[in-house]
Computed example of a mutant assay.
Amino acid sequence: MAKILFSPGKYIQGPGEIKNLGSYAAVLGKKALILISAGGKKRSGENVLSGFENVDCTAEFEIFHGECSYNEIHRIEKIVKEKECDLVIGIGGGKIFDTAKAVAYYQKTPVIICPTIASTDAPCSALSVIYSDAGVFEEYLFLPSNPNIVLLDTEIIAKSPVRLTMAGIGDALATYFEARACVESEATTCANGKATSAAFALAELCLNTLLEEGYKAKVALEAGALTPAVEKIVEANTLLSGIGFESCGLAGAHAIHNGLTVLEECHSMYHGEKVAFGTIVQLVLENVPMDELEEIIEFCISVDLPVTLKQLGVKKITEEKIRKVAELACAESDTLHNMPFEVSVESTYNAILAADAYGHRFLGK
């Protein structure tokens, strides 16, 4: 099987870039449907539309209903056809991106992704994560190509809640460890090939950037400052992690995240927060040396990422609940089976309990 690297057609990051969106859109289409939340439209709508004033492309907003489900995808598809749009733009967070990408795929249009938060590695990928209308994970929809353009305005991201960027760190934290597992097991990646050395190097750079810049970025963001550390974390969360996970593969951490979606108590937690805990579970499954486990748990604590089930909202831990998580994580179609050894519901169940215990130990409670 060939080695394959996926990446977006163009990646743009910098302060004030949202005002240039119209110029980039005009290269790809004549009429854009912009999928955005009601709050996002209120905060950024004026700046977005200002960029379309002097270009040969018009734009119309459509408010996202909150879940990347097939019902929502089909609803937006109808609007694209009715309004004769030839370009889809997703502005906001991960579920908006995934919906926009899926709609563009089905309607055969270009797509531009504009994160207003740095909370996941979804923007750059040729992948949509599909949930039920109730928010339970259903499947991965693999797409034939990556977004045409990914554009990030770091002024906007720096003003977003700090917790969202820290959640992005949690999502990105899994990149190297899942890549390492997939390289060792020679798993087929999300790009439907084997990992390239370039993608693995980016996954490793992603981890090193997080460990070096994560806490600095957290402090800066809490002070309302856009610093070089913040810029580096935005790039790590978005580009490095995006290429790293897609062209190296997913393994245990994201499978544990998917398992956690079965617990209603976890629905208020962000994707990356659950992935961060899933990373610890994966490291327990691998039985990594204690110094590696300690470094990751302590890093998570330093940037306010959850290291226990209680922090994820699970107030009462029962065998039934944790087994349900383990069973869903071990589903035949999920990525836990990309680990370089056999996994089972029993071993996953025990790893979840042990990861929770380690988290409590490092928290001192």
Rank of each mutant, 00 (worst) to 15 (best):
A2Q: 13
K3A: 13
F6V: 10
S7C: 13
G9V: 00
G16D: 11
G16N: 08
Y24A: 02
A26R: 10
A32I: 06
L35H: 05
S37I: 02
A38T: 12
G39L: 12
K42M: 11
G45S: 01
N47E: 15
S50N: 15
F52M: 06
A59N: 11
I63E: 15
F64I: 08
F64Y: 15
E67Y: 08
Y70S: 14
E77D: 13
V80T: 06
V80S: 01
K81N: 12
C85Y: 07
D86T: 04
V88T: 00
I89A: 04
I89S: 03
I89T: 04
I96N: 03
F97R: 04
Y105M: 10
T109S: 04
P110N: 08
I113C: 05
S128Y: 06
S132Q: 10
V136C: 04
V136D: 13
F137T: 04
E139A: 12
S160V: 01
P161W: 10
T165D: 07
G168D: 06
A172Q: 07
A174S: 15
E178Q: 08
R180T: 10
E184C: 09
E184F: 02
E186C: 11
T189L: 06
N192I: 03
A203L: 04
C206I: 06
E212L: 15
K216C: 08
K218T: 03
V219K: 15
L221H: 12
A223M: 14
A229M: 09
E231F: 11
I233D: 02
A236G: 11
L239R: 10
S241R: 06
G242N: 13
G244A: 03
F245R: 00
E246A: 06
A255I: 05
H257P: 03
N258L: 01
G259S: 10
L260R: 06
L263Y: 09
S268F: 13
Y270D: 15
G272S: 13
V281H: 02
L283W: 01
I296S: 06
I297F: 02
I297H: 07
F299L: 05
C300W: 09
V303R: 01
V303Y: 01
D304S: 15
T308K: 00
K310A: 14
G313W: 12
V314Q: 00
E320C: 09
K321Q: 14
V325M: 07
E327Y: 10
E327F: 07
C330G: 09
E332W: 12
T335W: 00
H337S: 05
P340E: 05
E346F: 12
T348H: 04
A355R: 03
A357H: 11
G359L: 08
G359D: 04
H360M: 12
R361F: 14
L363C: 11
